[in-house]
Simulated assay, not measured.
Amino acid sequence: MTTPDFTLRPERAEDEPFLRRLYVAIRMPEVEAMGWPEEMRQTFLEQQFSMQRSHYRTHYHDAEFSVIEADGAAVGRLYLFRGRRDHRIVDISLLPEVSGKGIGGALLDQVMTEAAALGRGVSIHVEGFNPARRLYDRKGFQEIEQRGPYWLMEWFPEGVIPAAAVFQLNTAS
Rank of each mutant, 00 (worst) to 15 (best):
M1T: 06
M1I: 10
M1P: 06
T2D: 13
T2V: 10
T2Y: 08
T3W: 04
T3F: 00
T3N: 03
T3R: 13
P4T: 02
P4L: 01
P4I: 03
P4N: 01
D5W: 01
F6E: 02
F6G: 00
F6D: 00
P10M: 03
P10V: 03
E11F: 01
E14P: 07
D15H: 04
E16K: 07
P17C: 07
P17A: 05
F18I: 00
L19A: 10
R20P: 08
L22V: 04
L22W: 05
L22P: 10
L22D: 02
Y23M: 08
I26K: 05
R27G: 04
E30V: 01
V31H: 12
M34W: 14
M34Q: 12
M34P: 00
P37R: 03
P37K: 06
P37L: 03
E38L: 05
M40Y: 05
R41Y: 03
R41N: 08
T43A: 15
F49V: 00
Q52M: 10
R53D: 14
S54T: 13
S54R: 14
H55T: 11
Y56E: 15
Y56A: 07
R57E: 13
R57F: 07
H61E: 11
D62H: 14
F65T: 05
S66L: 14
V67F: 09
I68N: 00
A70M: 11
A70K: 12
D71H: 12
A73H: 13
L78W: 07
L78G: 02
Y79I: 02
L80V: 11
R82F: 09
G83Q: 01
G83F: 01
D86E: 15
D86H: 14
H87I: 01
H87L: 11
I89A: 09
I89K: 07
D91A: 02
L94K: 07
P96E: 08
P96Q: 10
E97D: 14
V98T: 10
V98N: 11
S99H: 12
G100L: 03
K101W: 02
K101Y: 04
G102K: 08
I103Y: 12
I103R: 09
I103G: 04
G104M: 04
L108F: 11
V111P: 05
M112Y: 10
T113P: 00
T113V: 05
E114D: 14
E114M: 03
A115T: 04
A117N: 04
R120L: 12
V122W: 10
I124K: 06
H125P: 00
V126C: 07
V126F: 06
A132S: 15
A132K: 10
R133K: 15
R133W: 10
R134A: 14
L135E: 01
Y136T: 06
R138I: 05
F141D: 07
I144D: 02
E145D: 06
E145V: 11
Q146V: 09
R147I: 11
R147K: 13
Y150K: 06
W151M: 01
M153S: 04
M153E: 13
M153W: 11
E154I: 00
W155M: 00
F156H: 11
F156Y: 15
P157L: 00
E158N: 05
G159Q: 08
I161H: 06
A164Y: 15
A164F: 13
V166L: 14
V166P: 01
F167Y: 12
N170F: 11
N170D: 09
T171S: 13
T171A: 12
S173V: 11
S173P: 03
